[in-house]
Amino acid sequence: MKIITFIRHHFLFCLGMLMFLILLFFTFFGEYLPGIDRDLKEIEYIWTDKKIPLAPPFEPSEDYLLGTDRDGRDLLSLIVMGAKETLLIIISITIIRYLIAIPLAFLAHKKSLGIHHLVSWMNGFLSYIPSIILVILLVTLPPILTSETRLLYLIIVLAALEVGRVAEMFRLEFSQIASKEFVTGGNSIGVSNFRLFRKYLLPFLYGKLLISLVGDIGKVTFLLGQIGFLGIFITQVFVQVDAGQFAFFNTSLAWPMLLLNSYNDIRSAIWIPFFPALAMTYVIFTFNILSQGIQKLAK
């Protein structure tokens, strides 16, 4: 009875949790489900009824629930197999962003080391230039482009871009809390800045931190989707394709990489970009609902 009342009172939280658990289930156990091709077998052609060889991509049908991509790999299997990598990237971007932003916010609040100027300049710059343009310009720089640990750099670039926004948000929160009397009390007995940060200010922000962190996961997913459409690889190999000609090839299974060719796919095989984009929309939905749910729960 208690459970039912809890669900009725916190419907959004429960729905979000349920969607999140489904997502986790498919991420970690999806590959063992029947109908999922773990090896991602490529099919060169299939025979039609009239004995004509037909090349991929194949439309969604009974054999291929969501259709296949241009190499003849089953799209459903691709999505399930790529989920782990995608979620790992999204969540690490968000967490790294907050790990950098919170200390920055405190330093900006204290106006030490000139961090407050840095934060306001970052925000000013990004309120003029679309972040996706900056992402393109930064990740095509040679040290990042050719690095062995490209994925790590990419995550850091994506995390760092919006650090200013998050830092500004929490700087305001810090200033608000700092005007309370107990902080003045702490100051008067001479606590160190670190202790002030850890014991006086931060404990009041755990709830807000969680809500905005979960909400940010949706935003990161959106940015990652845009990267896919622009054809920026997450992990890649550099090979010589012909005498004197070199090219990068994608080696990642993450969902945005299924959108790479969407410019052509959208005209001929629209299911290839549609289902990965749907999967990303599901992730955004899940975390938005969860964030709202936690917000209501906190009240």
Binding site: G218, T221, F222, G225, Q226, F229, S262, I266, I270, P273, F274, A277, L278, M280, T281, I284, F285, N288, Q292
Partner: peptide
Amino acid sequence: WIFSSIPDFFFYIGLQYILI
């Protein structure tokens, strides 16, 4: 709230899918 959770590229692809 539902519509603001849909990324615009997905909205566009979905619209195109229907129109196609």
